[in-house]
Amino acid sequence: MRNSNPKHKFKKNIYGYLFITPFLVVFCIFSLYPILYTFFLSFQKWDGLIPPQPIGFRNFDRLLTDKVFFLSLWNSLRIWLMNYIPQILAALILSALFTFNRIRGMKFFRATYYLPNLITAASVGLLFNLLFNGDKSVANQILIALNVKGAPFSFFSSKAFTSGLVSYIQWWMWFGYTTIIVMAGITTIDKNIYEAAMVDGATKFQTFKSITLPLIRPTLIYMTITSIIGGMQLFDIPATLTNMAGDPQKAILTTSMYLYSQGFRSHNYGYAATISTGLFLIIGILSLIAFRFMRGGGKSGAYAD
C-alpha cells in the first residue's frame, strides 16, 4: 500500500469536502449566522425599525435581575422534569416488556404509542384547550354526567393543573418516540451476554438491571440531552394551550414564550436576543451536568462509553 501516490489521496480529500459542503453552507446560513447575530443583538437596543444602537451590557444587567426570566426558566425545567421522568420510566418498562416477552401485536402497540408524535404540536395544544376550556367543555360535561362533586371546574384557573397538563401532553407525545429509541438501543446488545446471564441463573429483573441498563447508557445519555434541549426550548404546547402569555398567572410561561413576547410583542429585539443567549448558556450547562452525571455512574459496563 506504500505506493499509493499522495496526489491521489489529496483528491479524495477534496471529494470529502465537496460532499459536506451542502450541509456546511446551509448550516452557516441558517444556524451559525443567526446564532452569531443573536449574540450581536444581545448588546443592542433595537425595535426592528430604527438601526440597532449598542448599549453594552445593559440588557445582561436587566436579565440577571429579571424575576420573570428566572420564573420562566423554572417553569420550563419543572415542566420538563415532570414529563421526562415518567417518560423514561414508561419507555424502559415498555421496551423491557416488548423485548423480553413475545407480545402479540407488539408492532401495533409500538406504532400506536408513536402516533401522537406525528400530530403538529400547535394542534395538540388547541385540542386540549378545547377539551378543558369552559363550563361546557368536554371534560366538564363528562364530570357533570358522572355527578362529580364541584363540577364544572375552571381548569385553566389552576396553576398546578395547567402546568401538569402541559407535562402530561409532552409525555403523551414523546413516550412512544423514547420507547422506540430505547428498544433500538436494547437490540444492539449482544445476545451472548443474555445467554451467559441465563446460564448463571439470573432473573429477568436482574438481567435488565445489570446488563440492559448499563449497556444502553449511551442511548439514555443521548435521550436525556436531546430532551433537555427540547424541553428548555418548549414553546408550542404551552403557547397554544392558553393565552400565549402563560396564563394562569405565568404558570406555563416558558423561556421561549417570554423571549417571543419581548421580541415580537414588545418589539424589544435586543432584550429578546439577550434572553436567548441566556437560555443558550443554561441549556449548555444543564446538558453538561446531565452528561457528567450519567457518565460518572461507575464503569461496570461491558465497555467504557
Binding site: N129, N133, G134, D135, K136, S137, P152, N243
Partner: peptide, 10 residues
C-alpha cells in the same frame, strides 16, 4: 359560561 371568547363553547 366561564369560557374564553372564540373558544368552541363560546
Amino acid at each position: 359560561l366561564n369560557t374564553d371568547p372564540w373558544s368552541p363553547s363560546w
